[in-house]
Design a protein around this nucleic acid. Sequence first.
DNA 1: ACCTGAACACCGTTCAAGT
DNA 2: ACCTGAACACCGTTCAAGT
Lengths: 235, 235
Amino acid sequence: MMAAKRSGAGSKRARAAPQPAQEVPGEPPLSRDRIVATALELLDAQGLDGLTMRRLADRLGSGAMSLYWHVDNKEEVFDLALDSVLEYRGPPQMVESQDWRADVVHMLEDWRASMLRHPWSASLLPRRAFGPNILGRLELLSKTLSRAGVADADLNVAIWSLWNYVMGATITRGNFDLSDDDRAAAQQRLASERYPTIERSRLLLDDDWDGAFRKGLDFLLDGLAPDRNFGCKIG
Amino acid sequence: MMAAKRSGAGSKRARAAPQPAQEVPGEPPLSRDRIVATALELLDAQGLDGLTMRRLADRLGSGAMSLYWHVDNKEEVFDLALDSVLEYRGPPQMVESQDWRADVVHMLEDWRASMLRHPWSASLLPRRAFGPNILGRLELLSKTLSRAGVADADLNVAIWSLWNYVMGATITRGNFDLSDDDRAAAQQRLASERYPTIERSRLLLDDDWDGAFRKGLDFLLDGLAPDRNFGCKIG
DNA sequence: ACCTGAACACCGTTCAAGT
DNA sequence: ACCTGAACACCGTTCAAGT
C-alpha cells in the first residue's frame, strides 16, 4: 500500500531550473508506467467503475488532463492495465517436460490465478484487442498442445475450447461475490419456488471453485488429448 | 413474459377520466414492460454503453425521471432486460426423451443462441443476481443430467463446467467483432513477432464459431457423461 | 516536451413539486 | 398514482494556453 498522497504544494514550488527533475520521492514525474501502476491500485481497490481519469490523475498528484499526454484515452489505460496483469512469469523454457498435460494445467491455472488476483481483469479481456502478454500465453499453450500431438487441424478448436472454459470460469468466479446473506436468500428462493433439482444440489451454495475448475478442466482435456488412455468405463 | 413483481398492470388501462390526451397510438402510458422492450431495442441498436436513462426516456416519449417511478434504478433495467433475453421457449416437457445428450446440446445451443441474438447480454450475466429465467434453464439442465445418471455429488461440477464453457464461448463470440482489416492487422502482428504456432494455425482468423462451440462441447460432455462409450482411442 | 484550467456535452439520481 | 424540471455531483475529452 504505497500512499503517495500529495504532501502539500512543495513539489510544485520547489523548482528553480527549467527542468526540476526533483528527487522528491512523493511526486516523481508522470510516466506511462506510473499511470498503469496507479490504475492497477485503483482498480484493485475500487473495481472497474472506480477507475476514473480524474481520480487516477488525483492519485498521481497531477491535473486530470496531464494523463492525455501519455495515453490516448481511457480505453488505452484499460488495455495497458490488463496486459500488465497477464504477464507470464513462468519457467522460461519448458522444452524438456515429459508431462505435457501437467504443463497445460499449470499454464491455465496460472492464467486463471493471475486474473483472479485482479478480479476486474477477466471481464475486460474478451472485448479487447489481444495484447502481447495474452498472445504469448496462447502461443505457449498452442506450442505445448502441438508438441503433445494435437493435429494442426484440431489446434484451434482445442485452444478456443480451453479459452472458453477458462474465461467463463474466471469471469464467473470474479463476479460471483455473494455475502452469506445473499447466499441464504438465493437458496431460500430456490426452495420456495420451482427449482427442486438445483435446490437439492445446493448449486448456489457450492463454493469449491478451485476444485470444480480443476475437475471440469480434466474432463475437457480428456476429450482434447490425442492419447487419452483413461476416462473410459467401457472400452 | 416479464414476471411482474408488483400488482397487475391492467389497472392503468381501466382508468378513464383523469388523464386526457392518450389513446394516441404513438404514446401509450409508461409501464415496466414498455420500458424493458424499449431498453432491448436501444441495447440491440447501440450496445451496452448506448443504454442511458435519458435516451431510454426519450425513446419512450417521457421525461427522464418518469422511469424511476416504474424502476428502482438503471441496474434494474439491466436485470429485466437480461432476464427477458433468457426466457426459454423450449418444448414444454421433454419427459420422454430417449437421448439426453441431444437434449443437453439443444438446451445449451439455444441458450447460447438466445444470448447471441443480443450480443450485449452475455457479458451482463455473470455479475448479476440470478433471475428467474436463467434459474429455470439451470434447473432444466440439472434435471436432465440427473435423469441421465449423473450422480448428485457430481451434479454441481457438471453444471458449472457447462456454464463456464457456454459463458466463455458466448461472451467471447459476442465481443470478438473484428473487421477484415482488424483481422489482417492481427494476423500481420502474429507473423511479424514471436508467435509462430498460433500464426501457423491462423488462430485469429478462424471463424467457425458454431462448429468450434459444438466440438468443444462434445469433448466436455464426453468427460461429464456417466456412460461414455466413445471418444477412446485406446481401451 | 510536458502539463494545465476552463469548457463542453454528457451521465445517474435526489428532491420538491405538479396533476 | 403517476409524471415532471431543476439541480447536484459527477463523467471523458477538446482546446488553447502555459512552462
